[in-house]
Simulated assay, not measured.
Amino acid sequence: MFSFSLRRSLALVLCFSIMALASVGLAQEQQAEWMEIVRAAEQLAQQGQPEQALAELQKVFSQTEEFAPAYFVAGMVHASTGDMAKAYENMVQATVHDPSMGMAHRMASQGAGAMGNFDASWEHAIKAHQAGTDMADAFAALSSMAEAPAGLEAAMAAPRVWVGPFDTSNWEATEATAGGSASGRASDAASTARVLSEAAPDIARWGRAAKKAFANSPAFGLVARPEQAKYILQLEVDDMADNTRRRTRGYLKLVDVQSGEEDYRRRVTFSDIGSDGDLIRDFDRILSIMEEWAAEQLR
């Protein structure tokens, strides 16, 4: 089966995870502390101390079940001891909490293949490719062991997307919107800053939902960094409710990384970016339209 060195895998994932800390919504100081623990566990793994490495990672898992780098390192530690079932389980968890982590998809593909689960191995290999990871050796190995899934060519050609920050440049919060109304356009920079600051957890929630939606879409690939992408996804906000149900309106756009031009732009409404359930329903509706557009681009 295809392989990848423990040291290089850990180095790449930890590097990219540290780069991503500034763009995620959880408390950055807390994530920095977790990353230090993950780094310590990585050092223990490199020194041939797997049990101590797993014990170190437990310090993260006792505080959160959503930190992808910890699952990745745990998976690598289990792989180094030959426990492929636990290695695969942890790699899958890493991809659940960070679907743009191509290296975790790669290692999940390797683990699934080692256990004879070629459907899962193909699935993760494709996701790794879509996330920008070089999978030429993996596809060659898989092709010699199992039939390729239907739709492989289309999946390989799916445009890669990086989920960017909200574009609020054309939006000015007003005293009217601060009171829950959407009328009025009087400039109020202080009010804009206040609304955006208070909405930060919900904006981060929107970002996580967007990543999951695009990662699960057969028409797009999700990447961790903008330089890997064909498109940057942005929501150009022109209205955001300032109450417990944070309805948000604007234009969802795909900006070509090379040209800077908007290749896709559509008016959208998110009923409440503070609700996971509402975001799932809204993205399901929106992605069905975007997938039709993506299919047209390939014709």
Score class of each variant (00 low, 15 high):
M19G: 08
A20E: 12
L21S: 05
L21Y: 03
A22E: 11
A22S: 10
V24Y: 00
L26G: 14
A27V: 11
Q28W: 13
E29G: 03
Q31G: 09
A32Y: 04
E33V: 13
W34H: 04
E36A: 15
I37M: 10
V38M: 10
R39E: 13
A41V: 13
E42L: 00
Q43H: 13
L44G: 11
A45I: 09
Q46P: 05
G48H: 09
P50N: 03
E51N: 05
Q52A: 15
A53Y: 07
A53K: 04
L54R: 03
A55Q: 11
L57V: 09
L57H: 02
Q58I: 06
Q58A: 15
K59I: 06
S62G: 02
S62F: 01
S62L: 11
Q63I: 05
E65D: 15
E66T: 12
E66H: 05
E66S: 10
E66Q: 11
A68C: 02
P69Q: 11
A74Q: 01
A74V: 01
A79P: 09
D83R: 02
M84C: 02
A85S: 05
A85I: 13
A85V: 13
A87Q: 00
Y88P: 07
N90M: 09
N90H: 13
M91F: 15
A94D: 06
T95Y: 02
M101E: 07
M101V: 03
H105Y: 04
M107I: 03
M107N: 10
M107G: 04
M107W: 04
A108T: 11
S109V: 01
S109D: 04
G113F: 03
A114V: 06
A114L: 06
G116Q: 08
F118M: 12
D119Q: 15
S121T: 01
W122M: 07
E123S: 15
H124W: 07
H124F: 11
A128K: 01
Q130F: 04
Q130Y: 08
D134H: 08
M135G: 11
A136M: 13
F139P: 03
F139C: 04
A141D: 15
S143T: 14
S144T: 13
E147Q: 15
E147L: 15
P149D: 07
P149Y: 09
A150H: 06
A150Y: 07
L152M: 01
